[in-house]
Design a protein around this nucleic acid. Sequence first.
RNA 1: GCCGAGGUAGCACAGUGGUAGUGCAGCUGAUUCGUAAUCAGCAGGUCGUGGGUUCAAAUCCCAUCCUCGGCUCCA
Length: 620
Amino acid sequence: MGQQQGQGLKPTRPIAIQVGDRYYDISATETATEADAGQEAVPVTVESPQGLSIYRHSASHIMAHAVKELFPDAKVTIGPATEDGFYYDFDIENPFTPEDLVKIEKKMSQIIKRNNKFVRKVITKDEAIRLFRDMGEVYKVEIIEDIEDDVVSLYEEGGFVDLCRGPHVPSTGVIAAFKLLKTAGAYWRGSEKNKMLQRVYGTAFATEPQLKDYLDFLEEVKKRDHRKIGKELDLFSINEEIGPGLILWHPNGAIIRMAIEDFWRDEHIKANYSILYTPHIAKLNLWQKSGHLDFYKENMYTPMEIEGADYEIKPMNCPFHLAIYKSALRSYRDLPIRYAELGTVYRYERSGVLHGLMRVRGFTQDDAHIFCRIDQIEDEILNVLDFTLFVLKTFGFEQFDIYLSTRPEKFVGSLENWDISTEALKKALTTKQLNYEIDPGEGVFYGPKIDIKVKDSLNRQWQCSTIQVDFNNPERFDITYRGSDDLSHMPIMIHRALMGSLERFFGVLIEHYSGAFPLWLSPVQLSILTISERHTGFAQELVDFFKRDGIRVDADFGDEKIGYKIRQASMKKVPYTVLIGDKEAQTATLTVRKRNGENIVFNTREELLDFLRKEINNKL
RNA sequence: GCCGAGGUAGCACAGUGGUAGUGCAGCUGAUUCGUAAUCAGCAGGUCGUGGGUUCAAAUCCCAUCCUCGGCUCCA
């Protein structure tokens, strides 16, 4: 439950000011004018993203204050605003319990009621170090020591002093709606080498209804959890005896996977890819050659010995595709060569990070490697982009966030090639009129890449597709083609995955559709239900009719009432249900109940079949 | 891996030292019914696993496996 407190605030009331691209306390006009002489101070309200972030940061201070009042031994560390709330990390002997969370929340409400003013103070570094050392706040001392300025700022509110850059809302009473969400362990400065701190997550909004909307959203996320729906619809399971992070695809999940794979294969063949199959293990030396043993070792399993040679279960498909490329002499006329494989790979993921279908240890990539000349790279990228968006749109994703990652500090390949291919990626994105963000220096060491994240029906981002240029593997495997000049040249290699991993993509689909898959993916497409026993014969005839044409039909001729059968079909999220009673047996007319309860009438069974076929073929 | 919370029937959960329970699902029988749950009966569990404490352990202790929330947001 959200806490009701404080005086609240009018949405239009400023909580801070902005001068240029800097933010200041509302009270600190002098500071602002000093630093940014001549520029106008613009009021910032909680309506703006920056305003909300300031507001939440203030809430995190109030939380730290509450914790210090309740647990004087706790040492404070950092407490930033996050994308959808805030957190604060504490070094404390006993981790917080859920009851502690309630206590902290109550204490925060009291502090908010007190409406203490946030007061900014600037002191020298030395003074600050002394101050926090005397308070026993060793983490703050450590932070101050790393600060380069000679002076640091403090914020005080009702006797609670914290090192903070600010700005803050004018007073604690401004916080109108907040809620503490969960506790978690978190390493000091995010490093496992450091001490484990106790983190408290919370969120704050300008108004109670906004907070409620957010909490409702969290509920909806829970309802759509692919692990929950996966169980309800009997799609997949993970079995302790088999191993964590290893997916068992049940019949219902497998049928969906087959539909996805069939679509994938058909479209790849249309797009001039060659489909490959490669083994699941290979000699360890292969991974030495590919460099995976050097830079990917922590994700690889320990090798197994077969007749004196070490073999390794594959974490990647590329070396196999390279081997197939190398199996013959290639001419410039052969390029581009496009190899695609639904390749199952196994990667070690630490037990704590495994998560349903989203983070697993064995998964199937919809992998492809394109070998081309440098002058073909732009066209290829263009094709891949088109192809990717087509595939993603087919699965009902309409919105994408695209990121271009450029050359990192450590890299292989020539500067020239980096420049040409980075430009090619950019140009392809521009040609397609796609908005993208540049992640400078975030490319993989072997080449620049484009990542495409889809937005699902809850507006959450999921990384699926990736398109990566690779200068490393062609060199390591010494692949070549014979040019028109009769000389040997090295082709460029492009890795790409559209869905990423089938497991993960399936998980995203489950949550995106909330288990109500479109017809072409639904495990059961048509459910035929009888009103009473005497309709069984006619109903069976219909079942056979639709099955003959490849429709996935489910029948319930049991002696339950029709309401019960409809409920069963509804809960399984079957797209279409046909009820068979006297009316149908006599007139040939079929009334079809859609998932949303609407009815559609068909004059003949052929008409219904035609309707279903169309919807399946159009993948709607 | 680390911190915390969990693991009880196919599923969802209750049970904190004294004979393992509820609902749904399953099975059997009755019912033959028109748009989200018909009624009754029956069956189902070495309480994650291994060890320990105790007259007695789902319950307390230790170990271990698995699941869940986090561990990138830097005053």
